[in-house]
């Protein structure tokens, strides 16, 4: 009896350890798998040309990712530009001004916002934002736009990254010791001065990490952007131009990629590039967050 129990324990330990090691290695397996599949194209074209050439004609063997990379950067840039101030102010309000009572109500709502599927966001974008841009915003600036544009993609992405930026930066704000605030208030500073000079200064690294996490989320978001950004393989020159972000390119061509030579290899290389960029963003911000956490303890 005793022996069987110990044996079970030992077997379970080995099994659990191997599962743990496996799950720690998933990232590497992913990168390796995608690299293997993208080798055929890397073998004949230098990475430089692939990343910085603007001609995209898969049927004649030209794979230049530059328009797609620029599309992603534009859309992500607009999203960050909209989301960062809104999210920071909201976080300040929720963690500094309003009491804990309101947070009890708002936290589940923010979680809900995070849980809405990206297709539903995309649909709302098609229904509301695209017509808005087409009928009101573009005419206001005296130009024409179909509505499917960098701006539409950016607005939708901004809404999609609200939850993560608010969530992470709230946690960072919460980790700023109350004594610091009290000391500042006791010296006669107003609440806003305390926030500006004490809390934000202390929370800065964590807030940057939160923004970078939001950025990487926006960078890789696919379906919603695919639905509203217009998908024209040209480098956009204004926010009212259509864009074709990298993730949308991958998702849009799954059907034909096996029939054109090197096409699948090119798309999996695009996934690899996406993975690498997002991984480095994530690793940086997680390291900052771990440091922040350690400083407090």
């Amino acid at each position: 009896m005793q022996r069987i129990r110990l044996l079970k324990d030992r077997i379970a330990r080995k099994l659990m350890l191997s599962l743990t090691i496996f799950s720690g290695l998933i990232v590497f397996i992913m990168a390796f798998g995608l690299y293997q599949r993208s080798r055929p194209i890397l073998a004949i074209k230098p990475l430089n040309e692939l990343l910085f050439s603007t001609s995209w004609q898969p049927s004649s063997g030209k794979f230049g990712f530059f328009p797609f990379i620029m599309g992603t950067l534009w859309v992500t840039g607009v999203a960050i530009f909209i989301a960062v101030p809104l999210c920071l102010f909201t976080t300040i309000y929720l963690s500094e001004y309003s009491g804990a009572r309101l947070c009890k109500w708002t936290n589940p709502l923010i979680d809900l916002l995070a849980g809405i599927p990206s297709v539903v966001y995309g649909m709302c974008g098609v229904l509301v934002i695209v017509p808005l841009i087409k009928d009101h915003i573009a005419p206001f600036f005296g130009t024409f736009s179909s509505g499917y544009s960098v701006l539409a993609g950016g607005v939708i992405l901004a809404v999609m990254i609200f939850p993560i930026i608010i969530h992470v930066s709230s946690e960072v704000f919460r980790s700023v010791p109350a004594e610091l605030r009290e000391a500042s208030l006791a010296l006669g500073a107003t609440k806003w001065q305390t926030v500006k000079h004490v809390v934000i200064r202390k929370a800065m690294p964590g807030v940057i990490a939160a923004i970078v996490l939001g950025l990487s989320r926006a960078f890789g978001e696919t379906m919603a952007v695919l639905m509203v950004a217009g998908n024209v393989a040209k480098v956009p020159s204004s926010v009212l131009d259509p864009a074709y972000p990298l993730p949308a390119l991958i998702a849009n061509n799954y059907g034909e990629m096996l029939s054109v030579p090197l096409y699948d290899s090119a798309l999996l290389l695009a996934s690899l590039v996406l993975l690498m960029v997002v991984l480095s963003f994530n690793i940086i911000s997680r390291i900052i967050l771990i440091r922040v956490e350690r400083n407090i303890r």
Binding site: T20, I21, S23, G24, I26, V27, M30, G33, L34, Q36, R37, L213, S216, R217, F219, G220, E221, T222, P247, I250, A251, Y254, L267, L268, S271, L274, L275, V278, L279, F281, N282, I283, R286, I290
Partner: peptide
Amino acid sequence: IAAFTRFSFDVLWGVPSIVYGAFGFT
């Protein structure tokens, strides 16, 4: 190993779903 596993889950959490799709495809 605990710290590494947590870290790698945090990083995996940020990988976009299209990349999972492409990886699943491979």
